[in-house]
Amino acid sequence: METVLSTDDSVRASAMPWQRVLGAYGAEARSECLRYLRAPGFILPMLLFSTVFYLMFGVLLNHGEASRYLLASYSAFGIIGPGLFGFGVSLAIERDGGLLTLKRALPMPPGAYLLGKMVMAMIAATIVSVLLLLIGVFLAHVSLSVTQIAKLMLTGAFGVLPFCALGMFVGTLIKGQGAPGLLNLIYLPMAFLSGLWLPLTMLPQVLQKIAPIWPSYHLNQLTLAAVGLNNGALLPHVLALMGYTVIFLLLAVRQLRRVG
């Protein structure tokens, strides 16, 4: 009898119309974007790193086809940042400060937390793409078709996702202020080893051979294709990036279950 009563009770009180559930996802994503767009110390390094590099190497020191090539590689470099840092640093800090615990106790819809951060990272990656495109087209005079521009922006918005998953995994391994250091230790060597700073052909043979193990290598192949410098098959690279996303996501979820 008691069971029947409490079941009725719970149906009454917990009825949450789907519009409100959707609203909760929206509110979470909006808050996540607002809070980081208002934190210049967080957002500016992500935006400036790749744009300043591109201004130096793609506009001042190189011209023509080199600028086109560098637009692709600095796009890949710039896209990775919001994923790694947006997810990794914020998760590490929120685990430390108790915010994640509070959100798990509150009736936040499952997934809204991750989706919010994902939307934030995709927007930040798109901003990076747009800034680099503006520099490329107007300062470096790289000629791009509308399709190419759209392809590069699309690659940016979705190419950030594997790095969100990697950042999330790192954020589950470390708590608090140590995260940016660890993430840079992954970010910078990985970018170098997959040819985002210097063309791969200028690196030692053995590094060229192992480049495909880095997810950033595959992202770079896609950005190169977007600006018309890679005519090879794209599907293997897309699949590789999806694979990395799934692997890092599973590792992160497993780690979160264990350490909270």
Partner: peptide
């Protein structure tokens, strides 16, 4: 909870609106 570091850059009304959105 005893300690929860809420997002420092959000305004109080934004925090309230966000949390209220979780409830029916």
């Amino acid at each position: 909870l005893q300690n929860a570091a809420l997002p420092p850059t959000l305004r109080v009304n934004e925090l309230l609106r966000l949390t209220a959105s979780y409830y029916p």
